[in-house]
């Protein structure tokens, strides 16, 4: 093999990569909080008694689970501006696509967690006079959260990886920066390997944590 690996060149652009990393983190922070938070609300809507709440929620979830994230991002970046009077930045398009997608997927985790609680818990709460909201808040959710930790962490990992899709609409996250470096220095091997290693190093401990959570609290996804 005659190729000479040279990481020094890539690493000399550490400030560029760092900027990319921060952009990745910014996108991740927004999408994961809104995505999981919205997912909780959506999950409860899907579990709701009244069809007026349930059907739209189900339609939303089905739409955003059965279309690819990239299609969603591209739609928000190219198609939505036709409908609305303001500009959609790469950040906004990516954030919207990933967030809505995450809401749809995590709502299923929440719904599953809520549904997996035995009926006996609902009945016991009802018998002491609790209403639906109180039962949710004091009895069901605290117990369900434990079972949902592992699948939710998995979802978080997926969201983190999805941030790379933003590079396709030119949001300057870390993969985008690597592409830039690669085009300037003609070293795609080192550039892309570096990005892969960055993701691996960041996510590997979290994946291990998921295994621990799985073992302690039960199955994931």
């Amino acid at each position: 093999m005659g190729y000479q690996w040279d990481f020094a060149t890539v690493l000399s652009y550490w400030d560029v990569l760092l900027g990319g990393g921060l952009a990745t983190l910014r996108l991740f922070a927004v999408t994961v909080t809104l995505g999981l938070g919205g997912g909780l609300v959506m999950g409860m809507l899907r579990h709701a008694g009244s069809p007026v709440l349930r059907y739209p929620a189900t339609a939303f979830v089905e739409l955003f689970r059965n279309t690819p994230v990239l299609v969603q991002i591209i739609w928000f970046y190219f198609a939505l501006p036709v409908l609305v009077p303001f500009d959609i930045s790469p950040f906004l398009a990516s954030a919207m696509g990933i967030t809505l997608n995450t809401i749809a997927f995590s709502s299923e985790i929440f719904r599953g967690g809520i549904q997996s609680m035995e009926r006996g818990q609902w009945e016991a709460a009802k018998a002491i006079g609790m209403n639906h909201a109180q039962t949710m808040r004091r009895i069901i959710l605290p117990q369900a959260i434990k079972r949902m930790l592992a699948p939710l962490t998995n979802r978080g990992i997926e969201v983190f990886k999805m941030s790379t899709l933003a590079s396709i609409v030119s949001y300057p996250e870390v993969l985008n920066q690597a592409k830039l470096i690669a085009s300037m220095e003609y070293n795609p091997i080192e550039s892309y390997t570096t990005v892969a290693i960055i993701f691996f190093v960041v996510l590997f401990p979290i994946v291990q944590a998921t295994y621990v959570l799985e073992r302690r609290f039960g199955k994931s996804d």
């Binding site: 990992i157 790379t164 993969l175 592409k179 795609p188 091997i189 892309y192 892969a196 691996f200 996510l203």
Partner: peptide, 21 residues
């Protein structure tokens, strides 16, 4: 673990741009 923790887009770029070299 490596192929589950690295984003598919990074993998695709690596196989398309980096591996041929």
């Amino acid at each position: 673990e490596f192929f589950r923790t690295t984003p598919p887009l990074v993998q695709l770029f690596w196989f398309f741009f980096a591996l041929p070299i």
